[in-house]
Measured scan of single mutants.
Amino acid sequence: TTTLTYTDEEEARKAAEELKRRGITFTYTKRGGTWEIRIK
């Protein structure tokens, strides 16, 4: 499992869109002031 952490929502959203485009499965979690993208 790879976890990407972002403090900028815009960056996190761009990363999530890129992963979706590649067909990669991930979970997206907001934790306080950070956003976590966990790639399975």
Rank of each mutant, 00 (worst) to 15 (best):
K20Y: 11
T2S: 08
E36H: 05
T34I: 15
R22T: 04
R31T: 13
E36I: 15
T29L: 11
R31K: 13
T25N: 12
G33A: 13
R13S: 06
T2M: 13
E10K: 13
T27W: 07
T29E: 13
T34N: 10
A15L: 05
R22I: 06
L19M: 04
G23F: 03
A15M: 15
F26T: 01
E10T: 13
Y6V: 01
A12I: 02
G32I: 05
F26L: 02
R21A: 11
E9R: 07
W35L: 02
I24V: 11
I24N: 02
L4V: 06
Y6L: 02
K40N: 14
G32A: 09
E18N: 08
Y6S: 01
T34D: 03
E17H: 09
G33V: 09
T27C: 09
R21K: 11
T2Y: 12
T34A: 10
Y6D: 00
L19D: 00
F26C: 02
R38L: 12
E11R: 06
Y28T: 06
K14M: 10
E11Q: 11
R13A: 07
K40L: 15
I39G: 01
E17S: 10
Y6I: 02
T2W: 14
K14I: 08
G23E: 03
R21L: 10
L4I: 10
T27L: 06
T3Q: 04
I24T: 03
T25W: 12
E9N: 03
Y28I: 15
T5K: 09
I24Q: 03
A15E: 04
G32K: 07
A15Y: 09
T34L: 15
K14G: 06
E18F: 10
E36A: 03
D8G: 04
Y6C: 02
L4S: 03
T1D: 14
K20R: 14
L19N: 01
K20L: 13
T7G: 06
Y6M: 02
T5N: 05
K30G: 05
W35F: 10
R21G: 05
K40G: 14
E9L: 05
W35N: 01
K14L: 11
T1M: 13
T29F: 10
K20N: 09
F26P: 01
T3F: 10
W35M: 02
T29G: 06
R38G: 04
L19Q: 01
W35Y: 10
E18T: 07
K40R: 12
R21M: 09
L19W: 02
E9M: 05
T25H: 13
G32V: 05
L19Y: 04
T34W: 12
Y28R: 02
K30I: 08
E18I: 10
T25A: 14
T29W: 07
R21Q: 09
T2E: 08
R21H: 06
E17P: 00
E36P: 00
R22G: 04
G23V: 01
E18P: 01
I24P: 00
E36V: 14
T25R: 13
T2C: 14
T2I: 15
E36Y: 14
W35R: 01
F26Q: 00
R31D: 06
W35S: 01
R31S: 11
K40Q: 15
L4T: 04
R31C: 09
G32W: 04
E36S: 04
T27A: 05
E10S: 13
E11V: 06
E11I: 06
D8T: 13
